[in-house]
Computed example of a mutant assay.
Amino acid sequence: MSPENDRIELCRNNWSRDGAQDAEKNKLKPWRVKSWVIPEASAEFVCQMEEVLDVYQRPFDQKRPIVCLDEARRQLVSETHLGFTDKNGVDHVDYEYKREGVVEIFMVAQPLAGQRQVVVTQSHNSIEWAKVVGRIVEEWYTDADRITLVQDNLSAHRKAALYEVFEPKRARTILQKIDFVYTPKHGSWLNVAEIELSILTRQGLTHRVASQAEFDQQVQAWVSQRNDKLAKVDWQFTAEDARIKLKRLYPSTIES
């Protein structure tokens, strides 16, 4: 082989080796991958989606409020070493921490009124859900004639659970004031309460909290501040928009 061919072969080998290394590096970049639950095209999904979207198009009516409910779990952690604040006002915390258990957050939001309520509990089950539903009817919306409650279709969201918490007449009275509307599977983005939970995480839970009492105090301070501002959610996405922008989710139809 000539010297020129040797150089060409060497370049090829180097390119092949370096190219393989680069390809391998590109496989190991988890920060460039975003997790997303992609719904499958189905009549069931779009039917529930459009039902929720139609609800959000209703005008504000205090006698018939639209209320959204969602839950989230948060870890309680305590510091193992004391942190400090530097001269620029920046807080510094040690990367080590101690797990102190978890709490459940129930977010109840009324988008058009700019009001929300948050309940912090130790567990997330049908009993705790039923207690929150009872508070929606009997404490927060006592003047409402009818309440539309938007939530996901979790197994814990059992109407029968109200009969396990309240005596029958009271349970029936609560349920008779609520119209349940469910977001579709893989459609949690349709729940305004989930948006409020995201805002709470960014604005109201800015440092490590070790106890449920402290956690609840921090959450309620955020609730009061946001309610005082009447921070509303102006939902603009409609069923008509969905039929265009999310056309791929709609199943093929049989024309008569």
Rank of each mutant, 00 (worst) to 15 (best):
V118G: 01
G114R: 01
V150Y: 01
A109F: 08
E104L: 10
V133M: 07
L190V: 02
E167K: 15
V102R: 15
A160I: 10
K159G: 02
G114K: 03
I105A: 01
E104Y: 13
Q176W: 09
G187R: 03
Q122N: 15
L154R: 12
R158F: 04
T142W: 09
A161V: 03
K131F: 02
K131N: 06
K169N: 14
R135F: 01
A109T: 11
P168I: 09
I127A: 06
H157S: 08
H157E: 09
T148M: 11
E167D: 15
A109I: 05
D145P: 06
K185E: 08
N191E: 09
K177T: 09
V103G: 00
A144V: 05
I174G: 00
I127F: 06
K98N: 14
D145Q: 13
A130G: 04
N125L: 07
K169G: 13
V137T: 04
K177H: 12
E139W: 02
E104C: 15
K177S: 09
V150T: 03
G187L: 04
Q117P: 10
I147G: 03
R146C: 13
L162M: 06
A144S: 13
I136H: 00
A156C: 09
S126D: 14
E100G: 08
A161D: 04
D143L: 12
Q122Y: 14
L162P: 01
E164D: 13
K159A: 03
S155F: 08
A144P: 03
P168Y: 05
F106S: 00
F106E: 00
H157C: 07
W189N: 08
L162Y: 00
T183K: 03
V118T: 02
A144H: 07
T121C: 12
D145E: 15
F106W: 12
Y182W: 11
V103M: 05
I178Q: 02
Q122T: 15
S188K: 08
R99A: 14
D179R: 10
I174N: 00
I136E: 00
P184I: 01
E128M: 08
H157M: 05
D152L: 04
R99Q: 14
R158C: 05
V119K: 07
T173Y: 12
K169W: 09
V181E: 08
Q117G: 04
S155A: 14
N191W: 03
T183S: 12
V133K: 01
Q176A: 14
H157Y: 09
S155I: 08
L154K: 07
P168L: 10
W189I: 07
Q110K: 09
A160D: 13
Y141P: 04
Y141I: 07
R172M: 12
I136K: 00
